[in-house]
Design a protein around this nucleic acid. Structure first.
Lengths: 230, 230
DNA sequence: GACTGTGAATCGATTCACAGCG
DNA sequence: CGCTGTGAATCGATTCACAGTC
């Protein structure tokens, strides 16, 4: 069965709400309460959860720690994710230093850049390495995802370098659509092969501000959609 | 007529592609070319554009500068948007210093924070001001949108402060769902009034990394959706 | 009695097929 | 002939209504 991507975005929201409720030592909740906090409706909450199992008790609602654990499992947040950041300019630095809070399941294991002025700088106990060393690095380290924080004109090449080095997931901060194919091979032949198994998720602040401009200009177009993405 | 929010996200993408084509001095394009670059299909491109007018020539395609100008107009990027940033920690600083490139239609006019250690610091020719001064500031300056880059637990209060000060659009970087109502009034009564006319757009990097974790764990769930947002 | 879980119904967005036009 | 623009068809997601059960 194929799950709407909007559902995945909402699950992240529900999980946050549950974490919040847990710190407030609230023991139970229900679809209406979750719906209100997540700004969706209760049918949606129940349908979203139903894709993955039965987590509640009829007549009772949901037990906060139980549902929280289940959502963490569903979203893959019970395992550790090893992350490298490619592009350690101001944006990459802000990402590296962002307080991830309860999100200790994500661990930065490497920082890369091409700029000699940045190489050797340390952030969060890691030293920025030259991009050339990525291949070598991948031989000795497990890397689950790469955060791409390079300027837009370098994003496509950097994404390909990540893919070729064996990184399977890319969180793309650059304001570009990454093309899922190789443009050329090393020897210059134009083989144009598909990327295999690279999952891309976009986080795009410039797009967000432009969408906001549109909605301010067109107040009748009410805006609902999930995440900031592409 | 109500326009899908996914269409707005895609228009931003098309505009970027057109800007790119313009720098490459490509004079014309067509729906198939745009579709390939935007990773959507040609029907989608034409339908998206059709919501706003007829910008092409049958048999010919689109003239790059013409379509670019039309999309800028549609998205509200022919006018200037005056922006304040609320929350000038590392994330706010990265945003303030991000090279917006061709996006000179967005202008930062004020920077705010509650942290005395940050107040007085300068970025991009602006001095960080205390949050208290927002109301006063709004009396003498036009502000079209606020970028909210405060820690999640402070986001709701800060958003309300922005709304009460008269800011009509918020780009929310905090990993929280902003509740569109006022929780209390100044005198302590609980009036719980609706926000009026505040448009919110989310940019959520932590959500992006969690969605990516899900898709890496479930490779059969192919991911298409637009923008990063909540 | 209250609230979940879910098939059926509705609604909306994407895709299609083709008419229209340079 | 090529490519846009668009009504109709399809597909998918959200909403609904209610059966199930604690």
């Amino acid at each position: 069965m194929t799950i709407p991507s909007a559902t995945i975005s909402r699950l992240v929201t529900y999980l946050r709400i549950l974490e919040q409720l847990e710190t407030e030592e609230v023991a139970r909740t229900n679809s209406h309460d979750l719906a209100e906090r997540a700004q969706v409706n209760a049918f949606q909450v129940r349908k979203d959860l139903a894709y993955f199992g039965r987590f509640g008790t009829r007549g009772m609602g949901y037990t906060v720690p139980v549902l929280k654990r289940e959502l963490m499992r569903v979203l893959g947040l019970t395992q550790r994710w090893r992350v490298i950041i490619v592009g350690m300019g101001r944006l990459g630095q802000a990402i590296a230093n962002y307080p991830v809070g309860s999100d200790y399941q994500f661990e930065y294991v490497g920082l890369f850049d091409v700029n000699p002025a940045l190489i050797g700088q340390r952030h969060q106990g890691l030293t920025i390495q030259p991009m050339d060393e990525l291949h070598e690095f991948m031989k000795t380290h497990q890397v689950d995802m790469g955060f791409l924080a390079v300027p837009p004109e370098k994003a496509q090449a950097a994404a390909q370098a990540l893919a070729e080095a064996g990184v399977r997931g890319i969180l793309n901060f650059a304001p570009t659509v990454l093309q899922p194919r190789l443009i050329a091979t090393e020897n210059g032949d134009e083989i144009s092969e598909e990327w295999h198994n690279v999952t891309i998720e976009n986080v795009d602040f410039l797009a967000g501000m432009k969408r906001l401009a549109f909605y301010l200009l067109n107040p009748n177009q009410k805006n609902d959609q999930p995440e900031d993405n592409t």
